[in-house]
Design a protein around this nucleic acid. Structure first.
Length: 599
RNA sequence: GCACCCGUAGCUCAGCUGGAUAGAGCGCUGCCCUCCGAAGGCAGAGGCCAGGGGUUCGAAUCCCUUCGGGUGCGCCA
C-alpha cells in the first residue's frame, strides 16, 4: 500500500491560506460536490455555501467528520435535508472518504481512510513545530498594542496577564499567517510623569544626603532610589534647592527613560519583546493631534458643547462647562466624549486618537488593543474614533483582560519587596517562573477573572495543567530515549518515512485524528483572538496521550515499545512523537518552553 | 440611572463564532503498577446551562426581558 504525500492531499483544492488543514481539504471536496450538484440541476444555482461547515463530530460514533451542508441548504434550496444529504453522499467519490451516512436531522457523517491519519502523523513529523502553521492571515498586517503600562514604576501583577495575553495572541496571529507588530504605547504625556519627576527629585535629594520628602501623592517605591543616585552622578548637587521649573522637564525625561528600561527588563523576564515603542509625548507639538482632530472635524464629529452630568455618583464639585467634544455617539458610543479639558489642554483621549490614527496611517489592516478590564468604558469611544478615522476600513478589536487574584495556599497573597504597595511582575516570575506564569495566565478566557495560587501552579500533579502538559511531553521523550537505547532509529526523518500500516488500532487512529484538529484549532483561535484555546487543546492532547499510555498496561499491543519488532515500534513512536510535536508547537504559541524531562 | 463583562455539576472552569445524548479537573464512590515514568489511568454518581419570552430545521451559544455578581461613567491615564 502506498500513500500519497501529504502535500498532494488537497490536490489543489485547498482553500488559499490553509495548508495542512484536513478539515478545509474535506470541506473543499464537499463544496465541489455541491457545485456539481448545482450544475446537474440537483440543487438551485447560486446558493450561498459560506455556512457549509465540516467539523469534528462530538461523538466519535458519528464518524471522523460531519457536514451540515444539507441542513444549511435545505431552506434556501426548498428541499428536504435528507434528499440533499443523500445526493451529496452519492457525489462524494473522493477516495479519502470511505463512507458517508446521513444521520440525525440531516448531518452527513463521513468516515475517512486510515491512511489519512497516517498522513497527519507524517505531516507533523516533517513539519516539526511548524505543524499547524497556516497562511490564513495571508500576510495581512496586524498591530497588537498591549501592556502600555505607565512609565512610573516596575510592572505589577495587573500588567502580567495583559503582557502574556498580548504576546501569546501575537504569536498565534503570526503562526496563522499574519504580519504582526507588537507595540507599546508609552503614556509619558500626562501628569503622572510629572509626579514621577518629583518623586525622583526627592530620591535625588536623598542621594545627596538630605531627608527625602515623599509627600502624599508621590511614588514611594524603593525602585526610585537608584534613579536618585544616577541623578546625583549626572548633576552632582547642582539641582538642589532649585525651583521645580528648572529641573522638572529634565528629570522627567531622565526618570521616564529609566522606568522604560526597567519595564523592558520586566517584560524580558516574561519572554516578551516589543517591536515598537510609541511615545504619547512625542505626539505633542508635532501637529499630529491637531491634524487628527481636524480630520474628525471635517467629518462633522467635533463640536463645542456641554455634557449631561454623570448619573449615579455625582462629583461634589460638578458644574456644567462647555468643552470640545467628539461626537462618538455617531459611531455607537453612549455619550459624546471630551477631548479638551476646560483649561484648553488635551484630555488623554485626544493624543490617543492621534496615536490610533498614526497606526491606521502606517498601513495596518487590523488593530488590536489589549486593555485592563478597568478600561472597559474606553472601548466604545476608541472604536468610534477608529471607525471614523479609517472610514470603517480598519477593524479595531479591544480585548479586555480581567483581574488576576493572587493566592498562596488559598490565602490572599500580599508581597511588596520593591514597590512598597504592590506585587510586582518580578515577584510573580521569581516565585512561579515565567513558563508556569504564562501558561496559567492563558488557562482562562481573557474576559474571565483568574485566580492564581502559587502553591497550586507549582504543584506536580494533574490538578495543575502546566505540569500535566509538560509531563506528557516528558513521557514522549522518555519513550524516544528508551527506543534509542534499544537500538531503534527514531529520528523524525526516519519515522516520517516509516511504514505506518501497523498503526491501526482505533485508539491510536483516534489520537492521530485529534492531532489533525490542531491546524484547524490554530485558525479558529486566531480568528477569535483567543489564545486560551491553545492551552485547553494541549491539555486535551496530553490527556489523550496519558490515556493511551495507560491502556498499554493492560493491552500489550498498545505499548509504544514492542520488543523485537522494530517496524511496529517505529510506527507507534511516530504517533507519539507527533504528539510531542504538537505539544511543542502549541507551547511555542503560548511562549512556554517544553520540558523534555521532569526529574 | 446608563453601558460593558460574567452567571454551565457541590467547587474551579471549557464548550471549537447556531449543531446530534452539554464536557474536563477537583471533591465523592469503586477499581488498575512482576508491565513503556501510578507525578498517571479506568469506571460510577452528580445538570431546569440563573429565570421567562422570542428568532429556526436546531439555542448553553443570537435577540428581548427579569434577577444576581463584577467593572466603568466630564476637567485621571
Amino acid at each position: 500500500m502506498t500513500f500519497r504525500p501529504w502535500r498532494r492531499l488537497g490536490d489543489g483544492r485547498n482553500q488559499p491560506g490553509t495548508p495542512m488543514n484536513l478539515f478545509n481539504d474535506i470541506r473543499a471536496v464537499v463544496i465541489e460536490a455541491l457545485t456539481k450538484m448545482a450544475e446537474a440541476g440537483e440543487l438551485p444555482q447560486g446558493l450561498d455555501l459560506s455556512n457549509v461547515a465540516v467539523e469534528p463530530p462530538r461523538d466519535p460514533a458519528h464518524g471522523d467528520m460531519a457536514t451540515n451542508a444539507a441542513m444549511v441548504l435545505a431552506k434556501p434550496a426548498g428541499m428536504k435535508p435528507r434528499d440533499i444529504a443523500d445526493r451529496l453522499a452519492a457525489r462524494l467519490t473522493d477516495p479519502r472518504i470511505t463512507a458517508a451516512e446521513v444521520a440525525g436531522p440531516g448531518f452527513l457523517n463521513l468516515r475517512l481512510a486510515p491512511a489519512i491519519w497516517h498522513d497527519v502523523v507524517r505531516a507533523a513529523l516533517k513539519s516539526g513545530v511548524d505543524f499547524g502553521r497556516s497562511d490564513m492571515g495571508a500576510g495581512s498586517r496586524v498591530n497588537v498594542e498591549f501592556v502600555s503600562a505607565n512609565p512610573t514604576g516596575p510592572m505589577h501583577v495587573g500588567h502580567v496577564r495583559g503582557a502574556v495575553f498580548g504576546d501569546a495572541l501575537a504569536r498565534l496571529l503570526a503562526f496563522s499567517g499574519h504580519d504582526v507588530t507588537r507595540e507599546y504605547y508609552i503614556n509619558d504625556g500626562g501628569a503622572q510623569v510629572d509626579v514621577l519627576a518629583r518623586s525622583a527629585y526627592e530620591r535625588y535629594r536623598e542621594a545627596n544626603g538630605l531627608e527625602p520628602e515623599i509627600r502624599e501623592g508621590l511614588y514611594p517605591g524603593d525602585y526610585l532610589i537608584p534613579v536618585g543616585e544616577a541623578l546625583k552622578e549626572r548633576y552632582g548637587d547642582s539641582l538642589l534647592d532649585r525651583p521645580e521649573d528648572e529641573w522638572l522637564a529634565e528629570i522627567r525625561d531622565f526618570a521616564t527613560e529609566r522606568m522604560m528600561a526597567m519595564i523592558r527588563e520586566d517584560l524580558a523576564l516574561l519572554g516578551v519583546q516589543m517591536d515598537v515603542y510609541s511615545s504619547e509625548k512625542a505626539l505633542y507639538g508635532t501637529g499630529r493631534i491637531e491634524a487628527a482632530i481636524e480630520r474628525l472635524q471635517s467629518q462633522g464629529l467635533i463640536y463645542r458643547g456641554v455634557l449631561e452630568p454623570p448619573k449615579g455618583k455625582l462629583p461634589e464639585d460638578w458644574e456644567a462647562r462647555e468643552q470640545l467634544l467628539f461626537k462618538s455617539t455617531a459611531h455607537g458610543d453612549d455619550v459624546d466624549r471630551p477631548i479638551q479639558k476646560s483649561d484648553g489642554a488635551w484630555t488623554y483621549f485626544a493624543p490617543d486618537i492621534a496615536y490610533h490614527w498614526d497606526k491606521i496611517d502606517r498601513g495596518f489592516d487590523q488593530l488590536i488593543d489589549v486593555f485592563g478590564a478597568d478600561h472597559g468604558g474606553y472601548v466604545k469611544r476608541m472604536n468610534a474614533a477608529v471607525k471614523a478615522l479609517s472610514n470603517g476600513r480598519v477593524p479595531l478589536d479591544i480585548k479586555l483582560v480581567q483581574l488576576v487574584k493572587l493566592f498562596k495556599n488559598g490565602e490572599p497573597f500580599k508581597m511588596s519587596k520593591r514597590a512598597g504597595t504592590f506585587v510586582t511582575l518580578r515577584d510573580v516570575v521569581e516565585e512561579a517562573g515565567a513558563d508556569v506564569t504564562r501558561f496559567i495566565m492563558l488557562t482562562r478566557k481573557n474576559d474571565a477573572a483568574l485566580d492564581f495560587d502559587f502553591a497550586k501552579v507549582l504543584e506536580q500533579s494533574k490538578d495543575n495543567p502546566v505540569w500535566y502538559v509538560q509531563y506528557a511531553n516528558a513521557r514522549v521523550n522518555s519513550v524516544l530515549r528508551r527506543a534509542r537505547e534499544a537500538g531503534i532509529d527514531v529520528d523524525d526523518s526516519t519515522l516520517a518515512a516509516a511504514d505506518l500500516t501497523t498503526l491501526a488500532h482505533p485508539a491510536e487512529l483516534a489520537l492521530a485524528a485529534k492531532l489533525a484538529e490542531w491546524p484547524r484549532l490554530v485558525e479558529h483561535a486566531a480568528r477569535a483572538h483567543e489564545p486560551h484555546r491553545v492551552a485547553f487543546f494541549l491539555y486535551e492532547i496530553a490527556s489523550d496521550l496519558h490515556s493511551l499510555w495507560n491502556r498499554g498496561n493492560d493491552e500489550t499491543a498498545l505499548r509504544f515499545l514492542q520488543e523485537g519488532d522494530a517496524a511496529t515500534t517505529q510506527g507507534k513512536i511516530a504517533l507519539v512523537r507527533a504528539v510531542g510535536v504538537v505539544i511543542s508547537s502549541g507551547l511555542g504559541i503560548l511562549g512556554v518552553t517544553p520540558m523534555d524531562e521532569m526529574r
